[in-house]
Structure formats: structure tokens, C-alpha cells
């Protein structure tokens, strides 16, 4: 979706302000939100793409005015309500009005380290041959889906070169809604900064994005 999360190329946010000796968390509530989001994700009620979709569905003004973990909190509350795991009234009061629903799995302390060490890979067997090869010229499609996508606005319609073929991966666009993993080939596509930003682009700069096959069309070299 063309939400406030798609920030590449925007102006007006001011300088980057690194913080010396930055702590991992800046407040205890951030620790709790982080852990709750990961533990709730582990229940299998939704997936990571669904969480990203929930975060970027915040109204743009609210997204930009919220700190990072406040965005996580608001999205988590929305997902919990949407999936019927608790009501907004329960979350507001902290008082449960009934038993919970069954979930697929629960993260316990004893399985945390081995389970996270194993990871949650998103590569999948390919459903067919790759359409593109390294060195191919491609044009990013001019797509503006209302739902989740990982094709940033700043490359849409732009011409690039396939730099790497990663294999097939879960397609975020369908996975986010629960419509299926729908694996597709994933490519690294390199764009010159002048292709992306015109005369304001640095001639000695390139930008690489990871693009799924449905995001790309062939282009005559």
C-alpha cells in the first residue's frame, strides 16, 4: 500500500541523528512490546508479513508521529482484535472477560533459544523456472496495490539490471493476508541513482532492491 512506511526518497525529515552508546531499549514498555510482538507472532495466528501490513496500515500522520515501538504496539493491538484473540475493551481495561482461543503454538522459555537459533526461513521450492537471469534488463512494474507489497515506490516504472537470483521465496503480498505463501523467484535488481532520481542522482551511486518476479517486466537492453 502507498502508506507512510514507504519512505525512500522523501525529503524534509532533517538529518540522521545517531545516539552515542545507545541502549537496546529506551524504556521498559519497549522491552515488553518487543517481546509480546515476537511471542504473539510465534502463535502462528498471523505471519511477519501480516504484522508489517498492520503497521503500515496506520494512518500516515499517525505512523509518522509514533515512535517505532508505539507503531508495533498499535499494530499488535489491532491484530489481536482482528483475529478475535481479545476485545479492545479487554485490552484497554486489562481485565479478561473470558477464556482465550486456541492458538497453534506457544513460545516457552525452554524452546526460545533453539527455536530462534534455527530461524524461520522463507525460501521455498520453486514452482517453475526463473524468468530472468543475471545481467537481464528489467523494468519494475508500475503497481499500486491497496494491500501489502514490498516493491518500494521509488523504483516503480524504473529500469534496472538483475544482479542476483536468490531462488524462490514466500510472496509477502499474498502471505500478509493469509492468502498463501505463493512462492516466487526473488532477484536483486540494481538501479543507477540517475535512473531513480534523474539529474539529482549521484552518477557514482547504485541502489539494489530485492524484487519478486511479479514485480518485474522484461525490458529491451
Amino acid at each position: 500500500m502507498n502508506g507512510a512506511q514507504d519512505l525512500g526518497g522523501m525529503h524534509g525529515f532533517g538529518p540522521v541523528r545517531p545516539e552515542a552508546d545507545e541502549p537496546v531499549f529506551h524504556a521498559d514498555w519497549e522491552r515488553r512490546v518487543f517481546a509480546l510482538a515476537l511471542a504473539m507472532g510465534f502463535t502462528g495466528t498471523w505471519n511477519l508479513d501480516g504484522s508489517r501490513a498492520a503497521r503500515e496500515s496506520l494512518p500516515p500522520a499517525e505512523y509518522l508521529a509514533s515512535s517505532y515501538y508505539a507503531i508495533w504496539l498499535k499494530a499488535l493491538e489491532a491484530q489481536v482484535a482482528q483475529h478475535g484473540l481479545a476485545t479492545p475493551e479487554e485490552m484497554q481495561s486489562g481485565v479478561s472477560s473470558g477464556p482465550g482461543k486456541a492458538v497453534a503454538r506457544i513460545l516457552t522459555a525452554d524452546i526460545l533459544e533453539p527455536r530462534f537459533r534455527a530461524g524461520f526461513p522463507s525460501d521455498r521450492p520453486a514452482q517453475g523456472p526463473a524468468r530472468f537471469a543475471i545481467g537481464d534488463t528489467v523494468r519494475a512494474r508500475n503497481l499500486h496495490p491497496r494491500g501489502h507489497t514490498r516493491l518500494p515506490r521509488y523504483v516503480r516504472g524504473r529500469v534496472g539490471r538483475v544482479e542476483h537470483v536468490h531462488g524462490a521465496f514466500v510472496l509477502p503480498d499474498t502471505n500478509a493476508t493469509g492468502a498463501g505463501e505463493n512462492p516466487h523467484w526473488l532477484y536483486t535488481v540494481g538501479f543507477s541513482a540517475t535512473e531513480l532520481w534523474g539529474p539529482d542522482g549521484d552518477p557514482n551511486q547504485r541502489v539494489m532492491v530485492e524484487a519478486f518476479e511479479p514485480y518485474l517486466d522484461p525490458e529491451a537492453a
Partner: peptide, 24 residues
């Protein structure tokens, strides 16, 4: 707000408080 959310999710049995501490 976060405390209320955590209470509910623990009470309904979706999350294990010890796992939350271990994650952090």
C-alpha cells in the same frame, strides 16, 4: 496500555511470561 495488553495476553494463555523475559 502495554501493561494491560500484557496482562490480557498472559491471562488468556497466548504468551508465557518467562519467555517474554527470556526474549528481552
Amino acid at each position: 496500555r502495554v501493561r494491560a495488553l500484557e496482562s490480557i495476553l498472559v491471562e488468556k494463555g497466548y504468551v508465557d511470561p518467562a519467555a517474554l523475559d527470556a526474549l528481552v
